[in-house]
Amino acid sequence: MIKNTLTDAPGQMLGYLFQIERAVFWLSELKTGGFVGIECGDDIVLKKNVNGENEIYEQDKSSISSKLPYSDLSSDLWKTLGIWLDKIKTSSIDIEDCHFFMVSNRKIPTNRLVWKFSNADNETELDICISLLREIGAKHTGKMTPIISKVLSYKDIELKELIRKIKVFDNASSKQPMFKEGIRNNMKIGKEVPFDNIYQNFIGWAFENIVDCWNSKNDAWLEVDSFISLSNRLITQYSNRPFIERTIENLPVSGKDVKSHKTENFVKQLEQIDADDDEKIMAINDYLRASSEKTRFAKEANITIQDWKQFEGNLIDRWDMIFKPTCRLSESSSDEKKGYEIYYKTLIHKEKLCGIDTEQNYTTRGAYHRLANKIIIGWHPLWKKLFI
């Protein structure tokens, strides 16, 4: 049982995160006055205004396995149909003002029944959908039988009323980007602004608001107006910065570059404290990324030589305040272990540049490696004897 829980956990977590990403997408899509609900009667519920007209009910399915969602006899398809039909029957939603979306982060095969639902444009095509639904459902004799039987107990006219309002979206079907890039396009965030940073703020803000609502035992409704205010504030914040660090995804390091730097002084310094190969490769990555950004900032950003001197001076001061007491007071049994302790105490830090917080870990860590490469600082208690 525990094994199954652990196996399912990554998929479940990605499913929750996918819901949050979809919620943020809809916040970026809706006009002021709108609301997006999470688990408020469906995975995602949209209200285009406070009165709830033109609601959208969305089921989101995220998959990391080879099993793709919304297959013809899948529980996610039949359970979703059952939920929506029940809502219509109990009049909790007005079918005339609603739309129903099935969304997947994976490509859904084009031969599946859900695409026939999505593409049905006239009465003949709707009748074909209902015939296929009943034919497929009638063949099933397994554990899904009660759910399928409940769906098929509805009249053709009731099924047709729902199917005409269903639309399916996957990661390849929409002409416009629907996920992360769609959020950027909707908010009209330019390429000069570090969208990855803003996106993470969007996701974090949505997550915190959802959890706060649930902890207060309230439905989780996110306001478009609040989201727009957050977006404007973040864009202003990043646009006014004298520098913007690129994410590590935008600063790839090749195996050739790593190999060519394995004999640098900062790597030799790590060897003296028994750092393993992974730690040395990480250090080379940080060193190369930080050096690349320092060069770019010199050309593009409003950062002076004095700013860099202040930045590195602060790093040296902090290292010195760690190095001396650790050498004297550490309970580590060897100089190598003391040096290893100094190294990690020093690198768990993000230093300000131009008085502004840096956001990428490599900026500070790479700068420390530059100083170690120049033999201005060291990790081993006897680093001066070893390298000077």
Rank of each mutant, 00 (worst) to 15 (best):
M1C: 08
T5S: 15
L6C: 13
A9C: 05
G11Y: 11
G11K: 15
L17N: 10
F18N: 10
Q19T: 09
I20W: 00
I20F: 01
F25E: 00
L27K: 09
G34T: 01
G34C: 05
G34W: 01
G37I: 14
D42T: 05
K48H: 05
N51C: 01
E53L: 05
Y57L: 15
D60V: 07
S62D: 11
I64E: 13
S65W: 03
S66W: 01
L73F: 02
S75F: 05
L77D: 10
W78T: 04
L81V: 04
I83E: 14
W84E: 01
L85A: 06
K87W: 05
I88T: 01
K89E: 14
I95N: 07
E96M: 03
F100C: 09
F100W: 09
R106E: 14
R112E: 06
L113T: 04
V114Q: 08
K116A: 09
F117C: 00
A120P: 04
E135V: 02
E135F: 04
I136Q: 09
G142K: 07
K143I: 03
T145S: 12
T145A: 10
I147H: 02
S149L: 11
E158V: 06
L159Q: 08
D170T: 12
D170R: 12
N171Q: 08
A172Y: 06
A172I: 13
E181N: 14
E181F: 10
G182L: 12
R184K: 15
G190P: 07
E192M: 07
P194I: 12
N197F: 14
Y199G: 00
Q200F: 07
N201P: 01
I203L: 13
W205L: 01
W205Y: 11
V211D: 00
V211M: 00
C213T: 06
W214M: 07
N215C: 06
N218A: 07
E223A: 13
E223V: 05
L230V: 00
Y238F: 15
S239V: 07
S239F: 05
P242M: 03
I244T: 09
E245P: 02
L251T: 10
K259Q: 09
K259V: 04
L270A: 11
L270F: 09
Q272F: 04
A275F: 11
D278P: 01
E279S: 14
K280M: 15
A283L: 13
D286K: 07
L288E: 12
S292L: 08
R296L: 01
I303R: 03
I305T: 04
Q306L: 04
W308N: 01
W308C: 01
K309L: 12
K309I: 10
E312Q: 08
L315P: 02
D320T: 13
D320F: 12
I322T: 08
T326Q: 09
C327S: 11
C327D: 09
L329V: 05
S330I: 12
Y340H: 14
E351V: 00
K352F: 03
G355K: 05
D357C: 01
G366W: 11
Y368T: 02
H369E: 13
R370Y: 02
L371V: 06
N373A: 11
I375T: 15
I375P: 08
G378R: 13
P381T: 05
